[in-house]
Design a protein around this nucleic acid. Structure first.
Lengths: 341, 341
DNA sequence: AATGCTATTGAAATCGCTTTCATGAAAATA
DNA sequence: TATTTTCATGAAAGCGATTTCAATAGCATT
C-alpha cells in the first residue's frame, strides 16, 4: 500500500549510468554528454523521479529553505512584508518556514533555535523589539539574519526599513503648519524601539523645529487596536489636543469613529494622521491621511539581501531605508500649496 | 571562521557511549540507564549539541514539517486560518512551510510538488477552487492532505469548513423577514464552488422557502475588493434591490460607503449583510451585520486532523463543519423578536 | 553454582543525495 | 605516431542522524 519512492539509484540503474551522472543532470551540471543527458532525462520522466530535498540538503548542507519569524500572520502590516519575502524567495527557489512569535522574546529564541535545527540557509526576522538575548542568538546562528520592517538601533544586523522618524516628522510638521499647537501622539508600547527611537524622536524633532514645547502628557501609550483607539479618544479630547498622530490604522479608526460619535468633527476639531495606509484608512469616514510605506518591497528587498548573504556576497548597504510617502485624505485639512489631484 | 557544528558523533565520543545511546537520550527513549542519560545530557549541554533535523529527517523519514498552501497571506481570511494552523502545528512540534499560490492552478500544482520534494509529512490546502488536476496531485501525494476553509464538492479530501450555505440561507431569510422582495447577492468569481454551490445555493433556498422568485439579474459577480464594492453599488441601486448579501467585507464596505455618499441610507434604503466579520465590519458607519465564522478554529481543527492522518489514525469525521453565527450590527434592521444586548 | 531473563548498550546498515578524485576515452598538439 | 589536454563518467566517501539486531552484564531463581 505504501507508495514506492523512486530514488536516484533507481534512475541510475535504469539509465545504465552512475548516480553521479544522474545527480549531474538533475543539477544542470554541464559536464554531461548531451546524449547521456537525454537518456537520463527520459528515465527520470518515465519513472517520475523527484529528488528528495532532505537527502539533498543533508549531502549539500543547503536546505534551500529560509526561516521567517513574524509576530503574527494576521497582522496585515507584517503579512504584507511576508508576501514580499515569499515572492522573492520563490523567485530564488527558496521556501519559507513561517513561524509566529507573538513578539514574545522567549518564543522568538525558541523558534530561532528550531529553525537553525532545520538547517535553514537564512533567517528573516520581523518583530517589534530586538533585545540582547535575541541579538546573541543571531550572532550564534550559522545562518545569516536580516531584519525586515524591524529596527535594532544597537545591533549591526542587516535590515530593511523605511524612515519612520522622518515620516513622523514630516507628518507632524504638516500638522503644525495647519496651526496646531497641541498635537497628541498615540502609540503602542513605548518599549518598542520603533516607537521611542523613531516615531517619538521624529515627533520631537518636528516640535523642536517649530519651537513648540514638548509635553509628555500628550504622548499616549495604548494598544494597537480599534478598541484601544475608541477608549483613547476621550482622553485625547480632554487633553485639549487638536491633532493627533497615530501609530496604527485600526487605532486611528477607533479614534475617528469615537470622535465623530461624540460630536468632535474630524478634521475640523481634530486632525488625524496614521501610519500604515492599510485599507482601513480608505474605509473610515472621513478617510484617514496616512504615511505610506512600501511594505511589500521592504520584505522583497530583505529577502534579496538575504540571498546575497547566503551566497557569501557582500552587501552594498547594511541598513537599507526605503522611501515613505504621505497620502492626504479627509482626516486632515489640505496642506499649504497642496495641489489637489 | 566557519562555525563548527557539533554532531551526535562528537557527543558520543565525549560521553564515551555509542551514537545509538545518544540518539536514545535525545529522543527520550526509556531504555537508557539513568546514570548514562545524565552523563550524556551533561555532554550535550557542555558541547551545546543541537540535533540536525535534516539528517534526522532523512533517517527517520519524517520531517516534522507540514506544507501550507495559501492563496495570499495578506488576505485576512486565510491568514486567520493560517494562524490557527500554525498554533496547533507548533503544539505538536511541527513547522509550517507556507507558500502563496495566488489561487492559480498551475502554481498550486507546482508548490505541491516542491512541498512533496521537501518531504513534508502532511499538507494543508487553502484555496478557492479545487480542480481535477489538483485532486489528482492530492491523490498522488504520499503525504495526507486536509482542506481548510476550502470546499471540494467532488472530492473526498478531508476538510474543515463552516456551513456557508446555511449561513447565507439564514442571513437572507432574515432579510426576507424584514419585508424585502428584491435581495441582491454580490459575490466574487462564480467559478469558485463556495460561491455557486454554497452561497448561491443558500440564497436560492431562502428565496424558495419564502416563495420568492429567483432572479439572475440580482446576482452580481465582481471582485472581492473595496473598489469593486464601490463600483457595484450604483448597479445594485439601479436593480431596485432593497437589501444585499455580500461575500466579502471590504466589498460590503465599498457598497455601504458608496451608498451613503449617494444618499442611499443603509439600512433604511438598503440593508447589507456580509460574510467574514473582519475588523472592517466594525469600522464602517453603519457597522455591518455579518456572518461569523470560527476562522482560527477551522485552521486549528484542520491541523489537528492532519496530525491524526500523519500518525495513521482514523478520522472520526471526514468533512468537519464548524458552527457559524450572525452578528447583527447597524447595516440591518433588528430582527423580529431580537433581544438587544 | 548454574540457568534464564531483562535491561542496557554498541556495531553497523540505512536513508537518498552531493561531491571529490581517479580513470579511460577522445580530441588536440607536437 | 607519441604526448598532452580536455571531457565524461563512475566509484566511493561522506552528510548526521535512526534503527535493527546482537551482545553483554547484572539479577533473580532454583
Amino acid at each position: 500500500m505504501e507508495k514506492q519512492t523512486v530514488t536516484i539509484y533507481d534512475v541510475a540503474r535504469e539509465a545504465a549510468v552512475s548516480m553521479a551522472t544522474v545527480s549531474r543532470v538533475v543539477n544542470g551540471n554541464p559536464n554531461v554528454k548531451p546524449a547521456t543527458r537525454k537518456k537520463v532525462l527520459a528515465v527520470i520522466e518515465r519513472l517520475d523521479y523527484r529528488p528528495n530535498a532532505v537527502a539533498r540538503g543533508l549531502a549539500s548542507k543547503r536546505s534551500t529553505t529560509v526561516g521567517v519569524i513574524i509576530p503574527d500572520v494576521t497582522n496585515i502590516y507584517f503579512a504584507s512584508l511576508a508576501r514580499g519575502i515569499d515572492d522573492i524567495a520563490m523567485m530564488y527557489k527558496y521556501n519559507i518556514i513561517l513561524t509566529n512569535s507573538d513578539d514574545a522574546s522567549e518564543q522568538e529564541v525558541n523558534v530561532l533555535n528550531t529553525l537553525m535545527a532545520k538547517q535553514v540557509d537564512g533567517i528573516i526576522f520581523m518583530g517589534n523589539h530586538v533585545d540582547d538575548k535575541l541579538r546573541a542568538e543571531f550572532k550564534r546562528a550559522k545562518a545569516p539574519v536580516v531584519l525586515a520592517g524591524t529596527v535594532d538601533p544597537a545591533g549591526d544586523t542587516p535590515s530593511v526599513n523605511s524612515d519612520y522618524a522622518a515620516a513622523v516628522e514630516e507628518a507632524v510638521t504638516n500638522l503644525i503648519n495647519h496651526g496646531h499647537k497641541k498635537i497628541a501622539l498615540a502609540l503602542g508600547s513605548l518599549s518598542q524601539s520603533i516607537n521611542t527611537e523613531y516615531r517619538l524622536a521624529g515627533y520631537k524633532r518636528a516640535l523642536n523645529k517649530a519651537k513648540l514645547p514638548y509635553d509628555d502628557a500628550l504622548v499616549y501609550e495604548a494598544g494597537y487596536s480599534y478598541d484601544a483607539g475608541k477608549k483613547l479618544q476621550p482622553v485625547i479630547a480632554d487633553s485639549g489636543a487638536t491633532a493627533v498622530f497615530v501609530g496604527d490604522d485600526e487605532m486611528a479608526a477607533g479614534i475617528i469613529n469615537a470622535s465623530m460619535e461624540s460630536g468632535i468633527n474630524v478634521p475640523n476639531d481634530l486632525e488625524v494622521v496614521t501610519s500604515n495606509n492599510t485599507i482601513v484608512t480608505q474605509i473610515t469616514r472621513p478617510a484617514i491621511t496616512s504615511i505610506t510605506q512600501p511594505l511589500y518591497d521592504i520584505g522583497a528587498v530583505a529577502m534579496r539581501m538575504l540571498t546575497k548573504l547566503m551566497n557569501d556576497k557582500e552587501l552594498d548597504e547594511k541598513a537599507v531605508i526605503l522611501p515613505y510617502g504621505i497620502v492626504r485624505r479627509d482626516s486632515t485639512k489640505s496642506d499649504e500649496g497642496e495641489t489637489v489631484n
